[in-house]
C-alpha cells in the first residue's frame, strides 16, 4: 500500500486504503489487533470462564447452573482444602526462600572471574531447561523408597541401616518435593540475578574498596540495594511459579502421602477432572488468585517503589 502511494505522488486524492496505510492510529490498532485477539482468547476468556465455573455446579458432561458462593462455602468447611492451602503456603515460602538464598549465592559466585566462566554459566541453566516432567521422573528414582541412590550411598557408607522413606513420611515427603523444586528453580533466580549483578558498575566497588569497606559492607551497601529491583521481579516470578506448581507433585506423589504434599493446583485438577466436579475444581483454582495477587502487590509496593532507589529518603 505504502509503495503504491509513493509511486503516484500526483494530485489524485488518496485512496481509502492508502489513507489507512498512512494513518498512524488506524495502523497502530491493526498491528496490535493480533496480540489483543490472542490475549482475549487465550488469557481473558479462559480466566473469565474459570471464574464463572467457580460459581456454578458444573460437572463433566453437564454445563451447570449458577449457585453463587456455594462452592466456596463448601471449601471453607473442608479440612482437606485447608490442609492443601497450608501445604501450598509452606511449599512456596520454604522453596522461595531457599531458591533466593542459594540462587543469589550462585550468582555471586558466577560473577567472579572463574576459569571456563561461560561454560559454567551455561551448565547452570540445565535444570531449568530440562522439561519438568523429565527431571521429576529422575527425582522419583532418587526418592524411591527402595532403590534411592541417596539411601544406597548412605547404606554403603555405613551411615544408615535402612533406606530413607523419602516420599512415605509426611515431613520427609514435604522436604523432598521442596528440594526437587529448589533444584529446578535455582538457575532461573541465579541467572537473572547474575544479569543484575553485571549492571552494577565496578567503579562503585573500587571506590568503596579505596574507602576501606569490607567485602560484606560492599555487598550490603552497594550490591544489595542496586540489585533490589531485579530481586523484586525475579522473586515475584519465582513465587508465582512455585505457588502454581503441578507437574512435580503429580509425578512424585500425586499429593500423597496422606495428602501432605497436595497443592492447590493438584487438588484443583483432582477434583475437576478425575473427580468430575468442574465447578469445585475451578473454585479452588480461583482461590489461588488472592494469594498470587498479594505476592505481586507485596513485591510491587514493598520492593520496587522504594524512593531511595531514586535518590530520595526511604
Amino acid at each position: 500500500m505504502a509503495n503504491a502511494a509513493m509511486a503516484e505522488p500526483t494530485v489524485r486524492p488518496r485512496s481509502f486504503w492508502a489513507g489507512i496505510g498512512q494513518g498512524r492510529h488506524v495502523l497502530g490498532i491493526v498491528f496490535m489487533l493480533p496480540a489483543a485477539i490472542f490475549l482475549l482468547f487465550f488469557l481473558t476468556y479462559p480466566l473469565g470462564l474459570g471464574v464463572w465455573l467457580g460459581f456454578t455446579d458444573a460437572r463433566i458432561g453437564r454445563p451447570g447452573i449458577f449457585i453463587g458462593l456455594e462452592n466456596y462455602e463448601l471449601l471453607w468447611g473442608d479440612s482437606l482444602f485447608w490442609l492443601v492451602v497450608f501445604n501450598t503456603v509452606l511449599y512456596t515460602t520454604v522453596a522461595s526462600v531457599l531458591k533466593f538464598g542459594l540462587g543469589l549465592w550462585l550468582a555471586l559466585l558466577l560473577n567472579q572471574s572463574l576459569p571456563f566462566k561461560s561454560f559454567f554459566r551455561a551448565v547452570v541453566l540445565l535444570p531449568w531447561v530440562v522439561p519438568t516432567v523429565l527431571s521429576a521422573i529422575a527425582f522419583w528414582w532418587i526418592f524411591d523408597s527402595q532403590y534411592s541412590i541417596i539411601s544406597w550411598a548412605l547404606i554403603k557408607l555405613g551411615l544408615i541401616s535402612a533406606p530413607i522413606n523419602f516420599l512415605g513420611d509426611v515431613a520427609n515427603a514435604r522436604a523432598s518435593v521442596i528440594a526437587a523444586n529448589v533444584w529446578r528453580g535455582i538457575p532461573f533466580v541465579a541467572i537473572s540475578l547474575l544479569a543484575g549483578l553485571q549492571t552494577i558498575s565496578p567503579s562503585l566497588h573500587e571506590a568503596a574498596t579505596l574507602d576501606g569497606a569490607t567485602s560484606w559492607q560492599r555487598f550490603r551497601f552497594i550490591t544489595l540495594p542496586l540489585l533490589t529491583p531485579i530481586i523484586a521481579v525475579v522473586m515475584t516470578f519465582s513465587v508465582l511459579f512455585t505457588f502454581t506448581d503441578f507437574q512435580l507433585i503429580y509425578v512424585l506423589t500425586r499429593g500423597g502421602p496422606l495428602n501432605s504434599t497436595h497443592l492447590m493446583a493438584t487438588l484443583s485438577f483432582q477434583r475437576a477432572i478425575p473427580g468430575g466436579q468442574l465447578g469445585e475444581g475451578a473454585a479452588i483454582a480461583v482461590a489461588m488468585i488472592p494469594f498470587l495477587l498479594s505476592a505481586i502487590l507485596f513485591s510491587y509496593f514493598g520492593l520496587q517503589r522504594r524512593k531511595w532507589q531514586q535518590g530520595g529518603a526511604d
Binding site: S145, N165, L167, G168, P257
Partner: peptide
Amino acid sequence: FIPGTESWL
C-alpha cells in the same frame, strides 16, 4: 510390609 509402601504409586 516392606517400608515405604505409603509412597507407592
